[in-house]
């Protein structure tokens, strides 16, 4: 018996190793593609950064000198090699405009962006799960009316674009009720409105998925058998219902998190939050290659990491997920 147990344990370790390897390879491939694409994209945008920095009437000699200083006169391949080398050591270069290192810009500006994104992810995860589970349990019984109400409300919220939601929320919570600060950054309270603007629509969509998933699980024979044991309700929930709902829902949450991180960059402007979005927009305008490249890769890295974490969590909770990947 001990031998079979050891064999099994080794088998499942192997399975984990293969699962993590496959997921890591996927993450690395995504990052490589991102590095190549951002490098190409900033250079395909028409216009000469040196010209933009020195102005339209700049002296050709000064322009050439600036190009050399920025490394723009080198062959693309050389530039690419330098760039990849930098990325591998987390050195994204220095801003053409200010001479600040991109790493420092990220360090200075990341918090307003990440704060709103993380808060939005928490809102989507917790809100979507709670509302969806609740709706699933309730609509299992009284279907028609509750179901229609739920679908109606989540359907409407689910299609509202963040800027519109943002405006609505500001009007309601900041102007009318004056519960929350309108804009700015710093305190967590100031991140609440942007997080809600970002997260409410995905939360409503996730709640719909969770409800359907909950109804599916509740109708399964294993739930009937589990109920026949008449366990305490909380055990039925934590040991039987929840993990079976989470398995398929977590990867979706991972994908939603990616859009939330991207969305946070965009919505900063609406809420006057000095985050990465502001830097990125400026960088694109003046053709500040290192800033644009560095920020895009950093944000891409955060997105890849988030969905990696979601996938691993799903695999921890639901063995079928990791077996499906390994097969």
């Amino acid at each position: 018996m001990t031998t079979t147990t050891t064999v099994r344990a080794r088998g499942s370790t192997m399975q984990w190793a293969r699962f993590l390897l496959i997921r890591l390879v996927r993450a690395v491939v995504v990052m490589v593609v991102l590095v190549v694409v951002t490098f190409a994209m900033v250079r395909l945008v028409p216009g000469d950064p040196a010209q933009r920095i020195l102005g339209m009437n700049a002296d050709p000699v000064a322009l050439a000198a600036t190009r050399e200083r920025l490394g723009l006169d080198a062959a693309w391949l050389t530039q690419f090699a330098d760039y990849v080398n930098g990325v591998l050591t987390f050195d994204f270069g220095t801003s053409f405009q200010t001479g600040e290192t991109v790493s420092k810009i990220i360090a200075d500006r990341v918090w307003p962006t990440l704060q709103a994104a993380l808060l939005a992810i928490v809102l989507v995860a917790v809100g979507g799960l709670l509302v969806g589970l609740w709706a699933g349990v309730v609509t299992e019984r009284r279907r028609p009316v509750t179901e229609a109400t739920f679908s109606g409300i989540t359907g409407v919220i689910g299609i509202l674009p963040p800027y519109l939601l943002g405006t609505l929320l500001v009007w309601l919570f900041a102007v009318q009720l004056q519960w929350l600060p309108v804009a700015g950054s710093g305190s967590l309270a100031k991140a609440i409105l942007p997080a809600m603007a970002l997260g409410l629509a995905p939360m409503a969509m996730l709640a719909r998925v969770v409800r359907v998933e909950t109804l599916t699980v509740l109708g399964q024979d294993y739930m009937r058998l589990a109920r026949s044991k008449h366990l305490p309700g909380i055990r039925l929930f934590t040991d039987h219902l929840l993990p079976n709902v989470l398995g398929p829902v977590l990867p979706i949450l991972g994908a939603l998190s990616a859009t939330l991180i991207g969305g946070s960059v965009v919505i900063e402007r609406v809420f006057a939050r000095p985050g990465l979005g502001e830097e990125l927009a400026q960088g694109v305008q003046v053709g500040d290659f290192p800033v644009v490249q560095g920020l895009v890769i950093f944000l891409g890295g955060v997105v890849v990491l988030t969905s990696f974490i979601a996938d691993v969590l799903a695999a921890i909770i639901d063995p079928r997920v990791r077996r499906a990947v390994v097969r």
Binding site: Q220, D221, Y222, R224, L225, A226, S228, K229, H230, L231, R235, D239, H240, P243, N244, G247, I317, D318, P319, R320
Partner: peptide, 30 residues
Amino acid sequence: LLGRKVALVLQDPSASLNPVRRIGPQMIEV
């Protein structure tokens, strides 16, 4: 009473066991 005295065996064994838990923990719940 029901948890102790009545055991249920259903038609489809593939659907009768919780797929995300090992057999041990779900067997010993009662």
